[in-house]
Amino acid sequence: MTDTHRMSLTRRRMLSALATLPVLSLARPALAGEKLGFGELYKSFGVLGLEFSDKVKRLNGEDVTVKGFMAPPLKAEANFFVLTEIPMSLCPFCSSDADWPDNILVVYLSEKQTFVQYNAPIEVHGVLEYGAWTDPETGFRSQLRLREAAFNTV
């Protein structure tokens, strides 16, 4: 019993801590929006292209929360990073024969956050956006993004 009590306290303290961070920067509620899983991004996979799920299409422009792993960023000062379903064992930015998986999300942070241990899962919340986009600074192309995003470890 004691254990449960302690755990719930810890959890509450953590939640409130998490809540304050984004409120300071974004003035919008923490962990807002619907949860979106990596398994829910595409309706179909095919050699001739992938098709976004109805859920992605419905949530376009809405706040969502996605859990995943941060891939090692292109450069430390990059204003975006790639969110992957499983930790990346290869670094496509660093290794010429490595390539990104099909189902990645590109995350544009609303303000700088310290990059985290790539081995640990994170939860990212931001505004979902789909469709082709080329990052003007780096030329990095993406199909699915979270804008004005913030993240925390889970």
């Binding site: 595409y42 001739l48 292209g49 098709e51 390539d99 082709a132 192309r141 699915l144």
Partner: peptide, 14 residues
């Protein structure tokens, strides 16, 4: 992925 135009989801072309 490298055969598909950039706007097709799944494409890796620029």
């Amino acid at each position: 992925a490298y055969f598909l135009g950039k706007d097709v989801p799944g494409s890796k072309r620029k």
